[in-house]
Amino acid sequence: MVWLDLLINGICLGGLYGVLGVGLALVIGVMRFVNISHGEFIVMASFLGVYVSALLPGLNPLWLLVPVAVVFFFVGYGVQAVLFNRVVTAPDFLAPILLTFGFSIVLQNVMFESFGTDVRALTAGGLARQSIAIGSVSIGVLPLITLALAILFFVVLQLVIARTGFGRAIRATADNRDVARLMGIKPTRIFNITMGFALALAAVAGLLLAMRATFTPFSGLSNLLVAFEVIVIGGFGSFWGALLGGFLLGVAQLVGLYFDPDAGIFYVHLAFFAVVLFRPQGLMGIKLP
């Protein structure tokens, strides 16, 4: 029963990891652009959550998900339009990496200056302690909500991309920018909206993460690492792969912690390493020739 317990709670945590990765995957898939500062945006959302919660004591932080996601949509749109679009089409592949790496350092220091290095968390009140017992397995209500939200976001994202006219334009732009322009699609606008979606997802991840674990202005890097591991494990460009990758990492973390309570997220990296070693194309990726 311990195993079942670990598995279910690992999957709940993994859903969150999936959300952590899918925004980054979306951006890489659509604009071949690696946003090194993705993790810092996740932390900024956590800070925004803590800040607003302090202003509105007693409010369940789950209510913040939608407004914070909306705010971060516009932040993403703006950052892409003002900053990132300058290098998206740069012939030098280093330009986007250097820009977003530099930007991540700027964001870290802005957060450090504004909030200091205190370890923070978002208290979900009674919700954090509630759990449902099914047979002998007990599942936390908050992790369950997290999982449900993660699946909801994946389904919605998938539907938007696969079924809507806008999603069609996103896929066309990802395939061939110039031909997309011949259709009347303005790639930079697609990129702005894509980054908006990506950072909205990052914001959701940031809030949910802050309800589970503590963070500091320097937590961005470990978020980025997990996000990368999720999408590499999933197989680049595969949305469902990212969710699956998240599940695997979540289960690995909880199983690891059970045997080795001081391990932190060491076993997450170990699982990542094992997948890369034995299945380098990722779980759902296409095997490279």
């Binding site: 069609r168 896929r171 066309a172 990802a174 395939d175 061939n176 031909v179 997309a180 011949l182």
Partner: peptide, 11 residues
């Protein structure tokens, strides 16, 4: 209509 047709392969 571009040279080489260039259909969107993921559509």
């Amino acid at each position: 209509v571009p040279e080489g047709r260039l259909l969107f392969q993921n559509l």
